[in-house]
Design a protein around this nucleic acid. Structure first.
Ligand SMILES: [Mn+2]
Ligand SMILES: [Mn+2]
Ligand SMILES: [Zn+2]
Ligand SMILES: [Zn+2]
Lengths: 175, 175
DNA sequence: GTGAATATGAAATTCATTTTCAATTAAATC
DNA sequence: GATTTAATTGAAAATGAATTTCATATTCAC
């Protein structure tokens, strides 16, 4: 049991350590290793983030955080998300709208996205054949691929069967 | 010879009509059909855009435009690019950096991009197999794809052979 | 040419995100 | 537990790309 973990127990009264997921623990570890401090705010924000659905926007996360602690500011949410990125625990993504969305770094494999431009729904998919072809294309021009982004924009199953009626969310604008 | 074309001749003294590409002519057509006006500014901005390299940023285009006519404002460049998009003649794209880049709508086929995060170079590629697989993936979840975006980020051939030396442009930040 | 409608550019505004800074807090050391 | 100091916080200000406003200028149908 590490020093950091003990500190957390002392501060947050045991219950917390029982429920602290691996990700939250890793975040704590990262903070310590980096000489950063494990603050109440960071704990709440990270915990909320890890328990939230995928592709949460900063604003959405902020709203959920504020429900737990009214005093936490939006700035600290931004700052903590940046730390989570630094820790390799979160990834920021920009879909069509003008809001960065965050998701937990997927355990092993990479995935891409299908975005419904009518209702905003985001589906994930994985396709190794595509990934392989991407690598091949890059190789052909001498490119060393470090990262990639594949997004399919269109109308989801639900929206299609619902016909032309308006969806639930604002549709993102494509440039 | 349409009315619009004649007007252009009258205004810009024949030379222009000779050199007016199909795209510029189409833009004129679009303006007319839409009840919009073919102004000096729009002409200069569109012509500059069509003659510029691919993936030009708004700021870059603005600089080139200002060299031809110092009085043209950045706002008008933004507005004209929006019109060109509306006419289907230009497409806006966001690569890693925080600047929208524009390119002429490609004649027929779709292409995707390889972006060097070290020097900013942007290469284009086309791969029908990937496109086909995308459609297949989408079908499987009942998604009707309207558009897609595939970007490969990495280090280009030139930057790789140049070793670890700094490149020419500012590297875009990945989220 | 005239006039109504559209376009322009400067300045103001928006909106996501970042920076600044005085006050607060974590945590190492006593 | 108290002391100390460097990191953190949140409010407010700043940033920067893109848009809107609005008074003036221009287009173009008549
Ligand atoms: Mn995802
Ligand atoms: Mn291109
Ligand atoms: Zn939908
Ligand atoms: Zn390069």
């Amino acid at each position: 049991m590490t020093k950091e973990r003990n500190l957390y127990i002392k501060k947050l009264k045991f219950i917390f350590i029982i429920h602290m997921g691996r990700e939250l623990y890793k975040f704590n570890q990262y903070l310590n290793e980096s000489g950063l401090r494990a603050t109440r705010q960071r704990g709440i924000i990270a915990k909320t983030f890890f328990e939230a659905g995928p592709h949460i926007s900063v604003e959405e996360l902020y709203h959920q955080v504020v429900e737990k602690d009214r005093r936490i500011g939006l700035v600290t949410v931004y700052r903590t998300l940046k730390l989570l990125r630094g820790a390799g625990l979160a990834q920021g993504r920009q879909f069509g709208d003008n809001h960065t969305r965050y998701e937990k770094t997927p355990g092993d494999s990479h995935h891409d996205h299908l975005i419904c431009t009518r209702c905003g729904r985001i589906l994930e998919f994985e396709n190794d054949t595509i990934e392989g072809l991407q690598r091949k294309v890059a190789e052909e021009v001498g490119f060393a691929v470090l990262d990639h982004k594949l997004e399919l924009y269109g109308i989801c199953k639900e929206c299609r069967s619902r016909g032309k009626k308006a969806g639930r969310k604002a549709p993102p604008t494509l440039s």
